[in-house]
Amino acid sequence: MDVKVKILRYNPEVVDEAEWKTYSVTLQPTDRVLDALHKVKWEQDGTLTFRRSCAHGVCGSDAMRINGRNRLACKTLIKDLNPEKEITVEPIKGLPVLKDLVVDMEPFFDAYRSVMPFLVTSGHEPTRERIQSQADRDRFDDTTKCILCAACTTSCPVFWSDGQYFGPQAIVGAHRFIFDSRDEGTEQRLEILNDKEGVWRCRTTFNCTDACPRGIEVTKAIQEVKRALIFRRV
């Protein structure tokens, strides 16, 4: 079938302002939006620029705003989008656009790196593995699934209006360790998140949870971190 794809194009080497361009492409209903972008790039306009790698929703490269909602282009099928109407594709919001659908990911990764997203332990290393019950392992399973795609953070109205806010992903990244029974860095991590730009900025709008392509309950994770801060225990 023929589908119209309207893409927000921007190349500061050539123009000052972003502009919409519409392309007509022939697709199968089971094709992904990523296939549509590839068809434009490979058959019509090689200058169209976007990031992608795995093409099946595991590397986190291609979060973009598709029909006004943050999704992975490689995990969104044409048939699920009402292909009768034009499909709109634009970069995720709140991070500087560098070219077409490519945004500057550095502020996003900086936020992640700032929450100490690594196991903190003290004392002697055991000779074998640390023992952890499957129940304790399950406690933080949800937040281990994160692929750092930024769909959540860039769907958050607080993040859009306040450039300093860590954003939901960083809290997810911290949650993964705060609730890991092997970890001993909780105090420090909670201190970081207690900061004025930390978890308290979240207004629980659930945009992040809706946006997450991995089905992580982002808002719930944030709530759990808030509760941990109030009661100072996990």
């Binding site: 593995e129 019950s133 499957q134 392992r137």
Partner: peptide, 21 residues
């Protein structure tokens, strides 16, 4: 190699005794 990864924090699935499954 596996034990090193566990010590780095890798969340392996566990057996009933809490060892790496």
């Amino acid at each position: 190699a596996v034990l090193d990864l566990e010590k780095m924090g890798l969340p392996f699935n566990r057996t009933a005794e809490g060892k790496i499954d």
